[in-house]
Amino acid sequence: MLEQHEPDLYQAVLDLEQTTPNQVSQQAQAFKSWLKDLLSTSVMPCDYCQSPLTVRIGHRLNFRCRSCRRTFNPLKKYQLNHLSHCELWLPFVDLLLQGETLKTANQQLGISPNTAAKWQSCFLWIMEKQGFSILANYCRVKRRQRYRVGNHNFV
Rank of each mutant, 00 (worst) to 15 (best):
W34E: 13
Q79N: 09
N106Q: 13
V43M: 13
S112R: 03
L38H: 13
M127V: 02
L96P: 03
G131N: 04
C139E: 03
K103H: 04
V13R: 04
P113H: 02
R69S: 11
F123H: 06
L102G: 05
Q11F: 07
E17M: 11
Y78S: 06
N114S: 08
R143M: 11
S84D: 07
L80E: 00
A136Y: 06
G150F: 11
P113K: 05
T71D: 04
Q29D: 09
C86Y: 06
N62M: 06
A136W: 07
G131D: 08
L16F: 04
V43L: 15
Q145Y: 10
V24L: 12
P52R: 05
T19D: 01
L96C: 06
C65G: 03
E17A: 09
V149T: 12
N81V: 00
L53N: 14
L38G: 12
A12Q: 12
A136E: 07
Q145F: 14
Q26G: 02
Q26V: 03
W119G: 11
L16K: 00
Q23K: 12
L109S: 02
W125D: 13
L83K: 04
L90R: 02
L75H: 03
N106S: 11
L88H: 06
T19R: 11
N151D: 13
V43W: 13
L75G: 03
F154C: 14
M44T: 01
A12N: 02
R64G: 03
T20W: 06
A136C: 09
H5V: 10
W119Q: 12
F63Y: 07
L53D: 15
S133Y: 05
R146T: 11
V141M: 05
Q79I: 02
Y48S: 10
Q130T: 02
D47Q: 15
F72L: 03
L80A: 00
T54R: 14
C46N: 06
K36I: 15
Q4A: 14
L109W: 02
Q50P: 09
R146S: 12
G110R: 07
S67K: 12
E87P: 10
N137E: 07
S51W: 12
F154M: 15
D47G: 13
Y78R: 05
H59I: 06
R60W: 09
N151P: 06
N106V: 00
I57P: 10
V93Q: 01
C65H: 03
E6A: 15
S33L: 15
A12D: 09
H59M: 09
L124R: 14
G99R: 06
L80D: 00
Y78F: 14
F31L: 11
R60H: 08
C86G: 00
L14C: 05
C139P: 08
R69M: 08
L61W: 11
T41H: 15
K76Q: 09
A105R: 10
G131S: 04
